[in-house]
Simulated assay, not measured.
Amino acid sequence: MIELDEIDRAILRALSRDATQSAGALGRALGLSQPACWRRVRRLHDVGAISGRRLVLDTNALGFGVTVFLGVSLAAKGRVSLEDFERAVSAIPEVQTVQHVLGIYDYRLRVIARDLSDFERVLRRRILTLPGVGAVDANVLMSEERRPGPFG
């Protein structure tokens, strides 16, 4: 675990709000020179505190109005490898995340669809036909708020 000082925490908070900021702009906002800020950001990358940047798409604006969380239990553990299931489910474009979890289900999937009938099509034709799928439980997302973590 890395030791973070208050400036490191401020950098992480600022980057979690807008990861596109330049080191110069970030440094000005935090009272640092551009080189000092760049060195700190580079160190945070090097030690793994920052593992990359990602683009967040607005799925509603792109026409995907339904998000469903699926709990998936594999029917025959041992008959299909976890890697085979993960590879197959990851190839489905509507599946946004694949999480191997401990508990009632083996996997938790985040699936987007245009509407409920589109989700039904994805479920029946793609997800339920995957190797090893047993029980599936669905929860439709009603609303979502971003809750900032300790640095955002």
Rank of each mutant, 00 (worst) to 15 (best):
I92Y: 11
V122D: 06
G78C: 05
V136P: 02
Q34D: 11
N139A: 15
V66M: 05
R121K: 12
N60C: 08
D106P: 03
Y105N: 15
A36Y: 06
T97D: 11
A36C: 05
E86S: 14
T67V: 13
G134I: 11
V140Y: 07
V133R: 01
E86V: 15
A23W: 04
G24M: 14
R124T: 10
L128Q: 13
P131K: 01
G48F: 05
L26I: 11
M1I: 01
F85T: 07
D46M: 08
R9K: 14
E86W: 12
S81K: 02
T97R: 10
L26G: 03
S51C: 10
L70G: 03
F64Y: 15
Q34K: 15
L116W: 05
R121C: 03
P131S: 05
I127Q: 00
R121V: 07
T67C: 12
F64E: 09
A10F: 03
V140F: 14
L123W: 03
T67L: 12
I112C: 06
A61D: 10
D46A: 15
R124F: 04
A135V: 13
R17D: 10
G63Q: 04
G132A: 09
S117V: 08
A10L: 06
A75K: 15
I127K: 00
E94Y: 01
L26F: 09
S143C: 07
T97W: 06
D106Y: 08
R87S: 10
I50K: 02
R40I: 00
A135H: 15
L102N: 01
E86K: 14
T97H: 13
T20P: 00
E120C: 01
F85G: 03
P93R: 08
G134D: 14
V72L: 04
A91Q: 11
S143R: 12
G103E: 08
L30C: 07
L15K: 06
H100E: 12
Y107K: 09
W38C: 02
A10P: 00
D58A: 04
F85M: 12
A10V: 00
P35S: 06
A88L: 11
A23R: 06
T67P: 00
G134K: 14
A75Q: 15
V133E: 02
G71H: 02
G103T: 07
F64Q: 07
Y107Q: 07
A61F: 02
R17V: 11
S33N: 10
G65F: 14
L62Q: 08
G132H: 07
A88P: 11
S51H: 09
E120A: 10
F64T: 03
V95E: 06
T20V: 04
Q21K: 13
E94C: 00
M142Y: 10
A10R: 03
G24Q: 13
T129C: 01
L12M: 08
K77E: 09
R42N: 12
Y105F: 15
D5N: 12
V136H: 07
G132D: 09
R13W: 06
G71S: 09
S16F: 03
G63L: 05
V101H: 01
R54L: 05
G27P: 04
G71P: 01
D115K: 14
T67G: 08
R87W: 10
V98G: 09
D18F: 06
V140R: 05
G31R: 13
L30M: 08
